[in-house]
């Protein structure tokens, strides 16, 4: 394969050209990250974005929620299901809605969305098992949703190279990120982190996208990195590596995850049914919204 090393100007242009995160989504994320956010501010942001408002009311009125009466406005939704629940739902709905749905070249966006949702759901499923709370669950879900966004950047800007790498990876069983490094001098992890940065996602989420899969002695493993690593690893164990092969997980990453869990990671596979249910429900959730 011919190399096509990316310099920083090119990378920066590619990242800048990515579709913006809708402003309302950024506002929802910022508000939901603020534990003291004023409820009326959240209501205002959702009310003023017709798409988000439509998604939220559709969700709250769905069978999934099973309320006995119809909810017609965002204000009613707060009053009926409570601010906290609405806040977490708004975060999920906003984040899912912000993922790019179309692209012209190379990458099957349906497949990309499915994978991203699955990893987000698995990361959230892991949250209580890592001893974390709902807000960390939101962060892990978001990290899962965007963890492969770097591949979208490549597919959009260098469709040929992207396809060639994917093909070679499948033929030779070489992980994509290794080929990316050879050919481009960077990885989709790095590009993904830059997109996350552009989208104003919080620093720990940016770092998680960048480092979750590859251990480096210079980077202290955060619980979010371990969580996202665990989610990706679990799904690859369950689904097999029928698509682009993952590299073998690095032993250091596994050790870090197991230290957090307090037991061998393979024990999580005993709960595969519960994990698969969680993934299925998240996909259903994404379909409603």
């Amino acid at each position: 394969m011919t190399t096509n090393k990316l310099d920083s100007a090119r990378i920066s242009k590619m990242v800048t050209d990515m579709p913006a995160f809708p402003r309302s989504v950024q506002e929802v994320l910022a508000l939901t990250n603020d534990i003291n956010c004023a409820p009326r501010d959240l209501v205002r942001v959702i009310e003023h974005d017709p798409v988000l408002r439509g998604r939220m009311t559709r969700l709250v009125n769905s069978a999934y929620f099973g309320l006995s009466r119809r909810i017609d406005s965002v204000k009613e939704a707060v009053a009926y299901i409570g601010l906290n629940t609405l806040k977490h739902l708004a975060m999920s709905v906003a984040a899912v809605g912000a993922l790019p749905k179309k692209n012209k070249a190379g990458l099957q966006m349906d497949e990309f969305l499915r994978d991203s949702l699955a990893v987000g759901a698995a990361a959230r499923w892991l949250t209580p098992r890592l001893g974390l709370g709902t807000r960390d669950g939101d962060d892990l879900f978001l990290a899962g949703l965007v963890h492969k966004i770097g591949q979208v950047v490549l597919a959009l800007h260098m469709p040929k190279v992207f396809r060639a790498i994917r093909q070679r990876s499948q033929e030779r069983g070489i992980p994509e990120h290794q080929l990316e490094l050879q050919v481009l001098g960077t990885t989709h992890f790095e590009l993904g982190a830059l997109v996350a940065l552009k989208w104003n996602l919080q620093e720990h989420i940016v770092d998680t996208v960048r480092h979750h899969w590859l251990y480096s002695p210079d980077v202290e493993r955060s619980v979010w990195m371990d969580g996202l690593f665990g989610a990706t690893w679990l799904l690859s164990m369950i689904n097999g590596t029928d698509r682009a092969p993952q590299s073998k997980p690095m032993p250091e990453c596994v050790v870090a995850l197991e230290t957090r869990l307090g037991h061998p990671a393979v024990e999580l596979l005993e709960e595969r049914q519960s994990l698969q249910d969680a993934v299925k429900k998240t996909k259903a959730f994404a379909e409603i919204t």
Partner: peptide, 21 residues
């Protein structure tokens, strides 16, 4: 109740409480 944030039913939540750890 079903937990709409974690998409989990009661069974999942109570089983997680009995996780080996």
């Amino acid at each position: 109740a079903f937990d709409p944030v974690y998409h989990r039913g009661l069974a999942d939540i109570l089983k997680a409480q009995m996780d080996y750890c």
